[in-house]
Amino acid sequence: MTALAFNPVISNTLVAAGATDGKVYIWDVQGNTLPQRTLVAGDVHDPVRTLAWSSDGQYLAAGYNDVNASILIWKI
């Protein structure tokens, strides 16, 4: 894992972790040990450099260590 971010909403128990292959895994810390969801960045296969949740916990942004310094945003 290259990055980790907890959802900022107190009642939301999701945590996101970025990987070296560009995938982002979403876990519910009160649930199963397997990821609840896996986000794939299309053609970006470089490591996730950083993760950030929006203040309302509905969006997750991932910054990548590729030549374009890509940033992808998902509605969770």
Rank of each mutant, 00 (worst) to 15 (best):
K75E: 05
G57T: 12
A52L: 05
R37L: 11
T13S: 15
A61I: 10
R37C: 14
T20D: 14
V24T: 00
N68M: 14
L34D: 14
A19P: 00
L4T: 07
A52C: 14
L72A: 03
N7P: 03
I10T: 11
I26W: 03
V48W: 00
D46W: 11
N32L: 12
I10V: 15
A41W: 01
A41G: 03
Q58F: 15
G42N: 11
L34Y: 10
A3T: 04
K23P: 04
A16P: 01
K75M: 13
A3Q: 08
F6V: 03
V40Y: 12
W53Q: 01
W74M: 05
Q30W: 13
N68A: 14
W53F: 08
P35F: 03
P47C: 11
S11H: 11
Y64Q: 01
G31H: 11
S54H: 06
A16T: 01
P47Q: 12
Q58V: 06
R49A: 07
L51H: 05
V15E: 02
W53E: 01
Y59V: 11
A17L: 07
T20Y: 15
L60S: 02
A62S: 04
D56P: 02
G18D: 01
G31Q: 08
T13Q: 10
I76Q: 00
L4S: 10
L34S: 11
P35H: 05
A52M: 12
T38S: 13
W74I: 07
Q36V: 07
G18N: 02
T2M: 13
I10F: 13
A17G: 07
T13C: 15
W53I: 02
S11G: 15
N32D: 15
P35M: 06
I71M: 07
I10A: 13
P47L: 09
V44R: 01
K75N: 10
A69V: 10
I76A: 06
V44T: 05
Q36R: 11
G22E: 00
P47T: 07
W53G: 00
H45Y: 15
D21T: 06
N65F: 07
G57N: 03
G63V: 08
T2D: 05
R49L: 14
T13P: 03
H45Q: 09
N65Y: 08
G42I: 11
H45A: 14
I26E: 02
V29A: 06
R37T: 13
V15Y: 04
G42L: 05
V44N: 09
T33E: 15
T13Y: 11
D21P: 09
G22T: 05
V9M: 05
T38E: 12
V9Q: 02
D56M: 14
T20S: 13
N68Y: 12
T38G: 06
V48D: 00
A17E: 02
T50P: 02
P35C: 07
A17F: 07
G31N: 12
I76K: 01
L60T: 00
V67F: 09
N12A: 09
R37W: 11
T38D: 06
V15K: 01
V9E: 02
A3S: 15
T50A: 15
N7M: 08
V67K: 13
Y59C: 12
V15N: 02
A5M: 09
G42T: 10
P47H: 12
L4M: 15
H45T: 14
L14H: 01
N12D: 10
